[in-house]
Structure formats: structure tokens, C-alpha cells
Computed example of a mutant assay.
Amino acid sequence: MAKQEITYEDILKELKAKQYRPIYYLMGEEPYYIDLISDYIIDNILTESEKEFNLSVVYGADVDIATIINAAKRYPMMSEYQVVVVKEAQNIKNMDELSYYLQKPLNSTILVICHKHGSIDKRKKLAAEIEKAGILFESKKIKDNMLPGFIALYLKKRGIDIEQKSSAMIADFVGTDLSRLTGELEKLIITMPAGQKRITPEQIEKNIGISKDFNNFELKNALLERDVLKANRIIKYFAENPKANPIQMSLSILFNFFSNLMLAYYAPEKSEQGIAQQLGLKSPWQAKEYINAMQKFSGVKVMQIIGEIRNCDAKSKGVGNSGTAQGDLLRELVYKILH
């Protein structure tokens, strides 16, 4: 049986229960979770008075592995623990030499290694030694179709609800940069009227600058409803506001949706639960859109649409395009999707 990977929730649960490990090696392409865990350790394990002598935060560009090991071998002063945090650890050479320290790490030291935009080879000895002594956590990029679920859960923890359309608007506009995404969500929380506990499209339009009527969420809905007039109105708006509505964003969203729709056809069970499991969706309700789309587009048509989106993408980058405007390219794509 494959070993279940540890999640950031597992790590935070342990930390909140004051169950500490000698080493936390936090790595991966998504900086958000690395910062979330390391910031919690910095802010919560030591008291303010203990931090003065027992908290060390260093950067990979300024230290070598020997310096880090020497820091980890120190004993705390007037405290049960000392915390050593290494940020930007991807800049450190000879990280394998950390193995010497891990043979017998100090239980009074909490060593946090923050290795962003990459990872160590899990097949190597160092990875096994980290897992034996403490935590090896890989922070992976979130998939586009998981963003609405992330947004809803983030806000739920703050006691705030969000409409499905609002969630999709933010996800489409911001993308998978979770640090920026949570920043936009915090902006919305701050600007919410007193007593309001639900984020609406109108609030997003006012505070983030996304049109509640002319956006990729509405374009996708127009295609699913086969509403030619609505789709063309949105495309006209996009053409008149190209900086806020670049064609590449629209093509990416449409490509991801129809690619997932193609995968949905291969789900062993075509129920909301079955399709959610097939696509890796956090909530079964997110599968309703795909079930609706399967009633409007055959599998063969979806394959054709994916091909047309790729062709449009190439033309938008100048391949085989003698000067057709991006708005016209998108209008042509919508025609081919609906006919």
C-alpha cells in the first residue's frame, strides 16, 4: 500500500497540539503552504521573550550547510526549544550534508528548512533520513478546477459564504497563485459591509474590478446554455477591454473546462460523486456543471472543441495568422463551439 502523503493540515494539527519534530523540510512549487507552516512555527512555538535568544531566521544565499548545522546544534537559552528557520534554502549547496546532523538531531531544536520552487529527490538517502527524524512536506501547485473549493473553504474558516459565480470569478481572474488569491480574499473580507457574511458578484466588481456580467464564468455559461447573443456580447466587451480580459486567459479556462469534460466521459460512474472523484473535485456539487455539459456536447464534439481551442491559441500567438484581431479569433472559436 502506498504511503499516504502528509498534508499541511496534518502538520498544523500537530503543531497546535504542541507536538514538535526536530526537523521540518518544507519544499515544492507552491510557496503558500511553505510560508503558512513556517510562519506558524515562528509566531507560536516561542514566547516573545524566548524569541530574543532562541529564534534564528537565516537565508540560503547568506549561509552554508555547515553554518545551519552548527546553529541547530546549539542548546536553547532559558527556553525548552530553539527555532532555526532557513528561508530560500534552494540556494544552499551540498544539502546532502544535512544527513550528518540528522543522525542524532537535538530534540530541543526545531529546524525548519524552506525550499521553494523545487524539491529534493525523494529517492535519495537524505529524504529518508528527514522522514525518519521529522517531517518532509511537498507543497504542490493546486489545479485550476480545485480553486473554487479552496476559496470556499478559506472563507468558511472565516465564517463567510461565497456564491458559486463569485468563487469562479475570483479563480478565473487570479489563477493558481495562492498568496495573491488569499490577498484578494482578505481585501474582500475587509470591504464587506457590516453584518454581511456572503460575498457577491457585485462586491467583487466593486472592489476587485472584475465585471459581474462580462467575465469568463459568464462566457462559459453562455456556451453551455448555447446563448449565442450573450456569448458575443461578452466577446465584444473583451475586445474593447483587452488588458483586463486577455485572450490567453479565456482560452486557458475554456481548455481546462473542456479537457475535464472529456475526462468526465471516462468516469466509471456518471453521478456527481463519480465525476467529482474522476476529476479530483473537492465537492460533488462542482460536478453538476460537467453533468449539464455532457447533455449539451457529445464526446466527439468535445474532442473537436479541444482541437479548435488549441488552433485558436496558436493563431493568437501569430502561428498561421495574417493579422486577425484577438476578438475576432475568439468570436470564430465560439461559433465553432456552438455549431
Rank of each mutant, 00 (worst) to 15 (best):
Y59E: 07
Y59R: 09
Y59F: 14
Y59P: 08
G60A: 06
A61S: 14
D62L: 10
D62K: 15
D62Q: 15
V63H: 13
V63W: 10
V63Y: 14
V63G: 09
V63A: 11
D64I: 07
A66T: 10
T67A: 14
I69A: 08
N70I: 09
N70P: 11
A71W: 05
A71P: 04
A71Q: 14
A72V: 11
K73E: 15
R74D: 10
R74A: 13
Y75T: 12
Y75G: 12
Y75H: 12
P76D: 06
M77E: 06
M77T: 07
M77A: 05
M78N: 09
S79K: 08
Y81K: 14
Y81M: 04
V83S: 10
V83C: 09
V84N: 07
V86W: 07
V86G: 08
K87D: 10
K87F: 03
E88A: 12
A89W: 04
Q90A: 10
N91G: 05
N91L: 12
N91I: 06
N91V: 02
I92G: 05
I92M: 03
K93R: 14
K93Q: 15
K93L: 12
N94Y: 12
N94G: 03
N94R: 14
M95P: 02
M95S: 05
D96M: 09
D96T: 15
S99P: 06
S99V: 04
S99W: 00
Y100T: 14
Y100G: 07
Y100P: 02
L102K: 11
L102H: 07
L102M: 11
L102I: 12
K104V: 09
P105Q: 08
P105K: 09
L106G: 11
N107Q: 13
N107K: 13
T109K: 05
I110E: 05
L111V: 06
L111C: 08
L111Q: 04
L111H: 02
V112K: 10
V112W: 02
V112R: 07
I113T: 09
C114R: 01
H115F: 14
H115L: 02
K116C: 06
K116V: 04
H117G: 08
H117P: 02
G118E: 00
G118T: 06
S119F: 00
S119V: 01
I120T: 12
D121P: 09
D121C: 01
K122G: 03
K122A: 13
K122P: 01
R123C: 01
R123K: 14
K124R: 15
K124M: 09
K125L: 00
K125P: 00
L126I: 14
A127D: 06
A128S: 13
A128T: 13
E129F: 06
E129N: 13
E129R: 13
E129C: 05
I130A: 07
E131I: 03
K132F: 02
K132T: 14
A133I: 08
G134K: 02
G134W: 00
G134Y: 01
G134S: 01
I135M: 06
I135K: 05
I135S: 01
I135F: 00
L136I: 03
F137N: 00
F137Q: 00
F137A: 01
F137R: 00
E138Y: 01
E138R: 02
K140M: 01
K140T: 02
K141R: 11
K141S: 09
I142E: 01
K143Y: 11
K143S: 02
D144Q: 15
D144R: 12
D144I: 12
N145H: 13
M146C: 11
M146F: 04
M146G: 07
L147G: 06
